[in-house]
Amino acid sequence: MIVIPMAGRSQRFFDAGYGEPKYRLDLNGVSVFAHAVESFRGQFETHPFLFIVAAEALEFVREEARRLGVREVRVVALPGPTAGQAETVELGLAGEGDATPLTIFNIDTFRPGFAFPGPWYEALDGWLEVFVGEGDNWSYVRPAPGDAPLALETAEKRPISNLCCTGLYHFARAGDFRAALAAERLAPQARELYVAPLYNHLIGRGARIGYHRIGRDEVIFCGTPQEYQGLIRLA
């Protein structure tokens, strides 16, 4: 299942003077929402999609997903703000079985031509997509010793390596996600309930969590007004 949480308030965009939430903004004739979801065009026929939204986005998301041609769509509207992206996903998954695989992705990031990595990753308990970068505003993966791309630790807004996450997180089972979030609530690693730190609880109990490295030029970020304006100038 492809899970796209988008219940945030787009506060940075409203503070910058925009009159609409970022997912509705036009970018080269289509919405930011459409650019993000188009990342998974190769999965439109094979994977169910779950969009977790604020109530006012419900009809917009249904119509855009229909127009894009996503075959199986579920849209869950939340009544109000949550304690972070991880809690947003948890609420949206209500009623979903623990065995369901989850691939979580941001609504303000584009991954043109995304494809799932090879069979080695299918045997893992989860993995994160990363690129080599710098700064203190990402999620991060610290590699485990050895040649295999396995994670020793994950962190949010704390640079523990130069492997920065694109915002794509995979869990082999929804039950593992739920258990890790329950553990995170007992000892939060950040002020919000982010997804990346959840992997530490799985790693701590022996799960095999990998990372899949891509080139920095394979991912496009549109999460801030500055990034959005930069993409308009490139058009």
Rank of each mutant, 00 (worst) to 15 (best):
R12G: 09
A115D: 12
G80L: 04
Q226P: 11
I209K: 05
A55S: 15
F44Q: 06
A65H: 02
V70E: 01
H201L: 00
V130L: 09
R74M: 07
N162Y: 10
S139N: 13
A174R: 06
L152Q: 14
A77I: 00
L102G: 05
E20I: 08
I214W: 03
H201N: 03
W138F: 12
V61Q: 03
G84H: 05
D98S: 12
R41A: 07
F105P: 00
G8Y: 11
V141G: 00
A155I: 02
T103L: 15
Y121C: 06
N106G: 11
I2G: 04
A183S: 13
G92C: 04
L181Q: 09
Y228D: 05
R24Y: 09
D147E: 15
L181E: 11
L181T: 04
R142I: 03
G42L: 15
N200H: 05
Y23M: 13
G19Q: 14
V73E: 02
S10I: 01
R66H: 10
F177Q: 06
D15Q: 13
F49D: 04
H212G: 02
A65Q: 01
V70L: 14
A183C: 12
G80S: 09
L68Y: 02
G92A: 05
H212V: 03
P112S: 10
L50P: 13
P143E: 01
R205L: 06
G84I: 00
V141A: 07
E184D: 10
A180K: 05
L27F: 11
E129V: 12
G210W: 04
I203Y: 00
P48E: 08
T109G: 10
A54F: 09
V53F: 06
V73M: 03
T46F: 09
V73Y: 05
E96Q: 10
F44D: 01
V76M: 02
V75R: 01
A187R: 14
E90G: 03
D26R: 12
R66P: 02
P119A: 13
Y199E: 03
A123D: 14
A54Q: 15
Y23W: 15
A151L: 05
C164A: 12
A55D: 15
Y140K: 02
G118S: 12
V89C: 07
S39G: 07
I203N: 00
D147I: 12
G126Q: 09
F177V: 04
G133K: 06
A187Q: 12
G69P: 00
P159L: 06
A174T: 11
R67D: 06
S39H: 08
R191T: 13
A54Y: 10
A36V: 07
G175W: 03
F114R: 07
N28P: 07
G113W: 02
I104L: 10
E218S: 15
V37C: 04
I214K: 07
I203L: 06
Q85Y: 13
G92W: 04
R173C: 11
E90D: 13
G84V: 00
L124Y: 00
L78F: 08
V70T: 09
R185T: 06
R158G: 02
A34N: 11
S10P: 08
V73R: 08
E227M: 06
E129M: 14
Y121E: 08
R62I: 04
W127Y: 15
G92D: 08
L78N: 08
I220E: 13
L193I: 02
G19I: 12
T109K: 09
A99G: 14
I2P: 11
L27S: 11
E156V: 14
A187G: 06
A54I: 05
R74N: 08
Y140C: 00
G92N: 04
